[in-house]
Design a protein around this nucleic acid. Structure first.
Lengths: 239, 239
DNA sequence: TAGTGGTCTAGACCACTCT
DNA sequence: GAGTGGTCTAGACCACTAC
């Protein structure tokens, strides 16, 4: 096989996109309708969508709801080992952050209890947030905080850094952190809250945090759009 | 829309896979042929493949060449901030590691030069390897080492840890490390060396390494199958 | 050589968004 | 209400793998 048609199509579309968004893309970064593109490239929607899916995998374009395909903005650089707040590092990269609190509750949660070594019935403060970069929803997250560590926490506002709150209002240290990252397919609530199709590629980041007395403090899960971030870790240790 | 048929199909297949590989899967972890599955679920291959692609995104199954769909093994836990050798941490998790050297050369490489702050014509020792876990190829990597740091390096064997070699034979410290991770779509050489279709989801890990005198030592790129690893970082810093 | 996955066609209907 | 993406059908041929 010389090369599949959709592969050549992918290359042509990619080139067109790199060409300063040329004439393919409108002011909002939106691509023409699939039927238009299919016609223009003399193929069917199925084949065209294969090419678009490939570019989606490369992180160059994405789709929003049923609204169409859009050019993806630059990836955000994110260091999950730092405790800089979302608003801080987004702003530092010249982007516009925004946070929405989706829900606040007190309830048990087995995975959090498990990760923190508590009994499965142990209650947590549960905070769920959606975060935006330049008005694009890029992640949803759930945080489960051990109530004993921060009594009355839910009275606070959560548009800003939770860690800053824990450090400054409750004088907690967040010294032992275990972070895991795996690729995932966004589904169910996560997908719909991000306004993407079920199955869209995502990245799952989990943290488990203990203070310097080894007491459990917090467990959280972030679900990112895969094309929204580039993880970057700087190490200056001597090994 | 209640729910798409392929979504329910995905759920049924996922359940069947979790059921101790039940009767769907043969001894090698291979699923039945697409045409068989499509018939069994009274749908077309296109729709069936949507469901399979979803499970692939979840990291539960993968395909190899044109050989078919296979259940994916457990993810390998990998800490890119540690300098433990591949063979060490794979073995430590009860898995079988293997490394193949694909090529050795001396040549310039612009991205490496760029990352290390050298001129674009600067030559590097270039080592390309393919690594296996339990005889499944899970990553290909290229390493570019600054020749001045390790003269004669290419005389060595590279089936084992390069970092160990650099530390023990050339007494280099690898103290300043910058690591970046982004999702990618495997393509071209990377995809074919891993025996997967172009466009398969992958994870790209790049490192830039300087010694404790801030001299450039090495730059490397790893291309992993997305479902083969779970990144895990442990931090004990005080912040 | 038979069977498989990879690719492709030419349609169709529905749910949703936009105006 | 028009247009769009999401889903689905019922085929087809080809390149490659396994036997």
């Amino acid at each position: 096989m010389a090369e599949a048609y959709y592969q050549r199509l992918t290359d042509r579309l990619r080139d067109a996109l790199l060409l300063e968004h040329s004439s393919w893309v409108d002011a909002d970064g939106k691509l023409p309708a699939e039927r238009i593109l299919a016609q223009r490239f003399k193929t069917t929607r199925v084949t065209l969508r294969q090419a678009l899916a490939q570019l989606e995998g490369e992180g160059r374009i994405h789709r929003s709801n049923r609204r169409g395909w859009f050019v993806s903005p630059l990836r955000l650089e994110y260091d999950p080992t730092r405790d800089a707040g979302f608003n801080d590092y987004v702003t530092a990269q010249g982007r516009l952050p925004r946070t929405e609190v989706l829900s606040l509750a007190t309830s048990p949660h087995a995975p959090a209890a498990n990760a923190l070594g508590l009994s499965v019935n142990h209650p947590f403060y549960h905070i769920r947030r959606r975060r935006y970069v330049d008005e694009r929803a890029v992640l949803v997250e759930s945080l489960w905080v051990v109530p004993e560590r921060a009594p009355g926490l839910l009275e606070e506002r959560f548009e800003f850094s939770l860690w800053k709150l824990l450090r400054e209002q409750w004088h907690l240290s967040l010294s032992h952190r275990s972070i895991s990252m795996v690729s995932e397919a966004l589904q169910g609530t996560d997908a719909s809250e991000l306004g993407v199709a079920s199955g869209t590629a995502g990245l799952n980041i989990c943290r488990t945090i203990f203070d310097d007395a080894h007491l459990p403090v917090e467990y959280d899960e972030e679900h990112w759009l895969h094309d929204a971030l580039s993880i970057r870790v700087e190490l200056k240790g001597t090994h």
